[in-house]
Computed example of a mutant assay.
Amino acid sequence: MGRSISSHHHLLFSSLVIFTLLLNHVHATKKCYIVYLGAHSHGPTPSSADLEIATSSHYDLLASILGSEENAKEAIIYSYNKQINGFAAMLEEEQAAQIAKNGKVVSVFLSKEHKLHTTRSWEFVGLRGNDINSAWQKGRFGENTIIANIDSGTKLK
């Protein structure tokens, strides 16, 4: 009976080890990488066909690393097909290193998330509405004035 319990423990332990190895392989850490390809050949005023060709070339390039266009379409988050030539994709570190070796690729870098410093910009720059002599009041509360337009890259869900 002691031998039976020992073999069950061995089987359980072996199964746990195999499961852990498989789980680690399946859930390899993917991060968002930006793949920069330099300037577009289509120039500053691209047609819709030019934009489609650029995006298609991004899928083709990534498919050469990931094995299929379907995998590339799943991985690509955004295709930069107007002003800059490149794409953002969810990749494993090894995949990012592999694509960086391609002669068409200028650079590959990890996308970094930046936190906004404020969501209350009037208060952030010291403009308060309750002081009669404040710059805020003297400037007519910003009427007809654009102070800044910042694209944080955040997508609403």
Rank of each mutant, 00 (worst) to 15 (best):
H8T: 15
L11I: 07
L12I: 12
F13Y: 15
V17W: 03
V17G: 04
I18M: 06
F19R: 00
F19K: 06
V26K: 10
K30Y: 10
K30D: 03
K31A: 08
I34T: 09
L37M: 09
H42R: 01
P44F: 05
P46V: 04
S47E: 04
A49V: 08
L51E: 12
L51M: 09
A54W: 03
T55K: 13
S57Y: 15
A63C: 07
A63W: 08
E70P: 00
A72P: 07
K73N: 02
I77P: 08
I77A: 12
Y80F: 14
Q83A: 11
I84D: 08
N85E: 06
M90T: 00
L91C: 01
E92C: 07
A100F: 07
K101P: 01
K101E: 12
K104I: 03
V105D: 04
S107L: 06
V108T: 14
F109N: 15
K115L: 03
L116D: 03
L116R: 08
H117C: 07
H117Y: 11
T118A: 06
F124I: 06
V125N: 01
G126K: 05
R128A: 02
N133D: 15
N133C: 06
A135E: 15
A135K: 10
W136Y: 14
K138N: 08
R140W: 09
F141G: 04
N149V: 14
I150Y: 12
K155C: 07
K155N: 08
K155L: 11
L156D: 07
L156C: 11
L156T: 14
K157A: 09
